[in-house]
Amino acid sequence: MSGLLEVSNVVAGYGDGPAILDGANLSVQPGKVHCIIGPNGAGKSTLLKTIVGMLKIRQGSVTFKGESLKGKRPDQILRRGICFVPQERALFPKMTVRENLRMGGFSLADKSKLEKRIDEIEERFPILGERRDQHAGTMSGGQQQTLAMARTLILKPEIVMLDEPSLGLAPKIVKEVFSIMRLMADEGITILLVEQNALMGLKHADWGVVLDLGRTLFEGPAAEVLTDPRIQELYLGGKKAA
């Protein structure tokens, strides 16, 4: 079955440097949470950056709803309905929360529609409404992550890609971040999650993809990947998943 987003034998890397992705494959099914796991340097973040047009596809193809994304700029890919929240959360620290939300809808031409959507977001995430005039850079890590994820909803995207949303956050906050992700998935948004903490990522996902040395090793239902002996051995340090 052809997926919403198809990555086929993609080779990509940074500038003229060596290829980080060396034949990566991925088939993203609509409405599911997909978690990409793998050791450091496996190419997980590189894969997301390649999909979103930040890195050039040297070989292979990436298609969204059958349309090739090869050679397209990030702003063009965004307009097709794919949002990306990188590790650093990609906020504008000296802009207020409200201004950051406005930037989330930068590609919307209708200003009144944008303001309406921001109001909706502030209703759903009251902390953002309470802090609308606060500079994003002065918020806590968890609040910043909430803002970065909520901001993607302004465009009503089809796919949201999250690169290590739990990075640097306290366990209690991580729980909140994953509950926001689940909320998005429940609304029908397809999630592509990269998570260094494989156990946690797979627990919150429907589908697991294992990447190593820039290639897709295998994939399957998250529960099965979680208990797969190869994963236990290679990525979870041999511990049994709780």
Partner: peptide, 15 residues
């Protein structure tokens, strides 16, 4: 302003 503060993020948001 967005490009000044975070060029990559601005690009990701369609700038």
């Amino acid at each position: 302003r967005a490009t000044t503060q975070n060029r990559e993020a601005a690009e990701l948001l369609g700038v």
